[in-house]
Design a protein around this nucleic acid. Sequence first.
DNA 1: CTTGACTTTTGCCAATTGGCAAATTATACT
DNA 2: AGTATAATTTGCCAATTGGCAAAAGTCAAG
Lengths: 127, 127
Amino acid sequence: MNNNSKSNNHLGRILKQQRVTIPLTLQELAAKSGVSPSHLGRIERGERFPSARILRKIAKPLGFDEGELFTLAGYLPSRSLSVSEPEPGYSSGQLDPYVARVLAQEPISVQRTVLGILSILKSLPRA
Amino acid sequence: MNNNSKSNNHLGRILKQQRVTIPLTLQELAAKSGVSPSHLGRIERGERFPSARILRKIAKPLGFDEGELFTLAGYLPSRSLSVSEPEPGYSSGQLDPYVARVLAQEPISVQRTVLGILSILKSLPRA
DNA sequence: CTTGACTTTTGCCAATTGGCAAATTATACT
DNA sequence: AGTATAATTTGCCAATTGGCAAAAGTCAAG
């Protein structure tokens, strides 16, 4: 019902995605992180924005590096790089093999971070 | 009267030290950072604890690296930058299927740009 | 000493965060 | 079906953040 819940919410989706992938319930994550399940739920659906203190608490239980989450939350910059999008979004549907090969050499947490950065860059009108 | 102001306040002292060294007045720093001078003053004397958003705003005008300030504030443990060698750093050699799926929906030029971003992040100094 | 300009601090306030407990919704188990 | 159990969401609330404007403190020049 509420207004700006879904919009502009990357972080929540990423957090939830990671939580259900592990998998954990909100209560379990709450137990591991020391953050109340209600608060976690609201963060995931974008009704609350997590403070740095909270982000830090949930990083490890979710398997994130702390700096990663800070970047995803927009607390740390995903350095001033412009993803130029010259030809508007026609997607090949294919993953470039070179890209796949290089990415596969990174830990999965890094792979996911890259994804998070990409989604942020795509959503930013201007930075 | 005011109790826990000075004690346990490293951050405030560091911030003030840096500000007066530059030198800047609270108002000037306020103008440059977009944070009110009263709030800045309270942060310096430990009456308020800066949120990540505020920390980010004052980092540049004070000549701090953002991650540095986060570390000083206790938001990050000791070293900050997100990407490389977080933990049992062995690369899986596998590309996370979720990552692959999302990336494959991007134009190949964007996929390659992502790789470029990753390589830049990995080349950044790690402390 | 007094004025005037500047800097810092304080008083108050709206907005937000985050927790607890109750209510609701989903998931099993007979 | 119904009922117990687990999971999520909601209602309410204390505590904190951060801004604005007024008060207090500082300091140089006349």
